[in-house]
């Protein structure tokens, strides 16, 4: 079991529905977000190239946030999902500084919060809120160990990349390009 996600940068229109869905589903406090949309523009007018990426925690295989956590609040659960135990977290912020993707934020209640791949939904066989709500169906969530899952098929069929693999974190959020 290895959960992962792929985002099709060619299909994404940058509507930020995933952001709103996540904030609603996970009761994210106002002013914070667990996922966000990045718009990268290359070139000069009229030769422009735009890449839209819906980014979130990469649920790294070699997660620096888990390694740096002084209390063991950051941990990896089944399927490789990186989670935070709010009652063990002291809010020191070591994980926030250690994440190359800026995927974590300090929750006003005093602990660090982040994307959980909607573990509570995934356990019940549903898809994460951001994937379920996407109007262009540009996100694929599934099990990398299952060769027939949507995700594995897409990754076999399409060219893809991960963000800064050179940081050595083995990220599991793929971008189809």
């Amino acid at each position: 079991m290895r959960y992962a996600m792929a985002v099709d940068t060619k299909k994404c229109v940058g509507c930020s529905d995933c952001v709103v869905a996540c904030q609603t589903e996970n009761n994210v406090p106002i002013g914070f977000c667990r996922d966000w949309v990045v718009e990268v523009i290359d070139g000069t007018y009229p030769q422009l190239e735009v890449e839209l990426r819906s980014e979130r925690c990469n649920h790294c295989e070699n997660a620096p946030c888990v390694r740096c956590c002084p209390t063991g609040a950051s941990h990896i659960v089944e399927g490789g999902i990186v989670m935070v135990k709010p009652n063990k977290c002291i809010g020191c912020g070591a994980c926030i500084a250690s994440c190359p993707y800026d995927a974590r934020y300090p929750h006003p209640k005093g602990y660090v919060d982040k994307c959980t791949f909607c573990f509570h939904r995934v356990k019940q066989g549903m898809k994460p809120a951001c994937v379920a709500v996407c109007p262009t169906k540009c996100m694929y969530f599934g099990d990398l160990d299952d060769p027939n899952s949507d995700l594995s098929v897409m990754l076999k069929r399409r060219k893809h990349k991960t963000l800064i693999p050179e940081a050595g974190t083995l990220p599991q959020l793929y971008f189809l390009i």
């Binding site: 740096c68 002084p70 250690s98 994440c99 190359p100 940081a167 050595g168 974190t169």
Partner: peptide
């Protein structure tokens, strides 16, 4: 060592 374990920095 704690600081040097921070991949992102």
């Amino acid at each position: 060592i704690l600081l040097s374990a921070f991949n992102a920095r």
